[in-house]
Design a protein around this nucleic acid. Structure first.
Length: 651
DNA sequence: CTAGGGTTAG
């Protein structure tokens, strides 16, 4: 007769199914199977070596499974992320055994993963029933985490408050809960309370969460103070903390700070590289982002989907189609193209690099598609002037049972307005009503815009008048609608009606619509008056687009010097449209001198736009500067710029 | 015999 100790030792070294089967029959023959300690160890082995169903069957054969046995299994199941089975086993075990702290903790983990808040509440209640949850900090963090992951921070806070002396992990769990549920200000507040209350002080893990909260708030100052705190501490900042700080600088656009930190970091992983690449890609340093990506690959850091996506965004930003294709190839080799986020980033990249054909090929290869990938394809087609194709995509989307959201509706209405087909707009209109999208003012505004651009002011007005909740977006779209038809008088009349009929307050877009209406109809004085109202009465800081219209208006009356001095006063960045408007005016009023200034700025801002070259060459030509004009036309040819030919359609 | 909190993304 073997002793339980001998068999236990054997179980400890058992690595094969064959030996396990022998051990099992041994315990049955000798009656050792009634030893709970042995049963627990054996069950763990079942789950390690056998398929889960078989293991469960063998477990069910155990005469008196005790809490230890169950905990072992629950632990294994949690490790294998088989959370449904965790909960089913937990449910059956509570009928014959009293769960302990470990049992409850495993069950809570499963609830977090499955977002089963009601099950979690039951476990919470069970813990209270057995009375001793408050002595166990592990359960506290388990509960707070469960409620946080289920998105219920009120309950998380209540569970937290059941503990009178929370330790650092319990505090951190609550802070993380707020941060992960996008309540970063609350996260920072709890963090501050923790620093005051806890004598242990924040540890690196707490600091990571605090920095993440600062990043969400785009609060560089608070983040920097955390950074200063880290530097004051003696310990070397752990990699995740450095990465969190790097991400803070990256997201807030402080490329310089990010670069400095990146440079001094002794250890870097794929996350550090991704943060830096993404930072450069989004802050006008796309070329640097691409060389960073190359450097990362060269140094043997294995790229993952995030790094590939960031690199693709860099290609997108600088229209580097060649590099984009290279990264695509790499992503394909690494099997990353299967990632839905990577595929979507590829679609965005190809679309932005004016290669819709390749984007469509990527899309067609995708094994599964979601709303965002469909949207990327649809947007890209609109962006590339393929309005008809985008309409086809919209139909395919519906055929594939993908329900469009409001953003999709806005985009497709935009495409429809480009096509200018009234019947199509009516179709979309009925879809908008059926889908309940009219409550979204951006959809409503797009619909008004679409009818206006299809030439039906009657329908546009009908939509406008029927909307009971007219907000500033709706009103503005109607002003613009009249503007498109040159009915500045109506637009202005409606502008006044907005003040008598509603309490809506105009914004920058409102004035852009009104100014555009004035410009289109040639209402020079009125336009300038509205510009002054916007500035003085509403204290709205005009943007480049507003200036472009005013420059255009001043240009029409030949007040080029006034326009020039207005541009010189601009606080905001002078966009290409402003210089374009000035250049257009110079052509009409034959001012080569100011035209030259405008053109130089234009070519600086947008060197690839052939239209500006043509405009400038016309300025030179009317001034008799034939040599300059010829020189310019030559440089167009050299740059192989495409001139967009005008087309008219007669219906 | 077993246990809790952290970083990048379409």
């Amino acid at each position: 007769m073997r002793s339980p100790e001998t068999v236990l030792k054997l179980v400890g070294v058992c690595k094969t199914t064959k030996l396990l089967t022998q051990l099992r029959s041994l315990t049955i023959k000798t009656g050792l199977r009634y030893d709970t300690h042995l049963a627990a160890k054996l069950t763990k082995l079942y789950y390690e070596l056998l398929p889960v169903q078989t293991a469960r069957k063998l477990f069910d054969e155990i005469p008196q499974p005790n809490v230890y046995t169950c905990n072992r299994i629950l632990q294994r199941l949690c490790g294998k992320k088989r959370y449904e089975e965790v909960l089913s086993l937990f449910s059956s075990m509570v009928s014959f055994e009293k769960p302990d702290h470990f049992t409850l903790l495993f069950a809570l983990k499963a609830c977090s993963a499955l977002k089963q808040i009601n099950f979690g509440k039951t476990i919470h209640g069970l813990g209270r029933k057995y009375g001793n949850i408050h002595s166990n900090m592990f359960l506290g963090s388990g509960l707070v985490e469960m409620y946080s992951k289920c998105g219920n921070m009120d309950d998380a806070l209540r569970a937290f408050e059941e503990y009178s002396n929370p330790d650092i992990v319990l505090w951190t769990t609550l802070v993380t809960g707020y941060e992960k549920n996008f309540v970063p200000d609350e996260a920072l507040e709890v963090f501050t309370r923790m620093v005051m209350a806890c004598c242990v002080g924040p540890d690196p893990i707490t600091l990571v969460t605090a920095v993440s909260a600062c990043t969400q708030l785009m609060n560089l100052k608070a983040g920097k103070s955390v950074h200063a705190f880290v530097l004051r501490m003696c310990y070397e900042s752990p990699l995740p903390l450095s990465n969190a700080l790097l991400n803070l600088y990256a997201k807030t656009g402080f490329t310089f700070c990010a670069g400095n930190l990146f440079r001094v970091m002794e250890e870097k992983d794929v996350i550090s590289w991704s943060c830096m690449i993404s930072c450069c890609a989004h802050n006008n340093a796309a070329d640097r982002a691409i060389s960073l990506f190359d450097e990362m690959i060269y140094k043997g850091v294995e790229p993952n989907s995030v790094s590939v996506i960031s690199a693709l965004q860099a290609c997108e930003a600088c229209c580097n189609l060649e590099k984009g294709r290279q990264i695509h190839e790499l992503a394909f080799q690494k099997g990353l193209e299967l990632d839905i986020l990577v595929s979507t980033a590829l679609i965005d990249m190809y679309m932005s690099c004016c290669s819709p054909h390749e984007a469509i090929m990527v899309f067609d290869r995708m094994p599964n598609k979601d709303l965002v990938s469909w949207f990327a394809l649809l947007c890209g087609c609109v962006q590339n002037g393929l309005a008809n194709k985008s309409m086809q995509i919209f139909r395919d989307m519906m055929a594939n049972d993908i329900r469009p959201d409001a953003t999709v509706m806005v985009k497709i209405l935009g495409a429809c307005s480009e096509l200018g087909v009234l019947e199509l707009t009516s179709c979309l209109h009925s879809y908008v009503i059926r889908g309940g999208f009219l409550s979204n003012s951006f959809v409503g505004a797009s619909l008004i815009d679409c009818y206006a651009k299809c030439g039906s002011m009657e329908e546009a007005i009908k939509v406008f008048e029927r909307l009971t909740e007219k907000d500033v977006v709706i009103w503005s779209s109607m002003f613009a609608g009249y503007g498109i038809h040159g009915q500045a008088r109506e637009s202005i009349k409606l502008f006044h009606r907005m003040f008598t009929d509603s309490t809506v307050y105009p914004n920058k877009v409102t004035f852009l619509s009104i100014l555009a209406a004035c410009s289109h109809a040639g209402f020079v004085e009125e336009g300038i008056e509205f510009f002054n109202i916007m500035l003085n009465k509403y204290q709205l800081m005009p943007e480049s687009k507003h200036y472009a219209i005013i420059v255009d208006l001043l240009g029409r009356t030949g007040e080029l010097d006034k326009a020039m001095s207005l541009i010189n006063q601009m606080q905001s960045q002078v966009g290409a449209h402003v210089w374009g408007a000035l250049l257009g005016a110079c052509r009409i009023h034959q001012s080569a001198e100011i035209g030259d200034v405008a053109a130089r700025n234009l070519l600086r801002l947008d060197p690839d736009n052939a239209g500006y070259y043509i405009l400038l060459s016309n300025v030179y030509a009317v001034d008799g500067k034939w040599d300059d004009a010829a020189e310019l036309r030559r440089s167009i040819k050299e740059k192989e710029l495409k001139t967009i030919t005008g087309q008219s359609v007669v219906l």
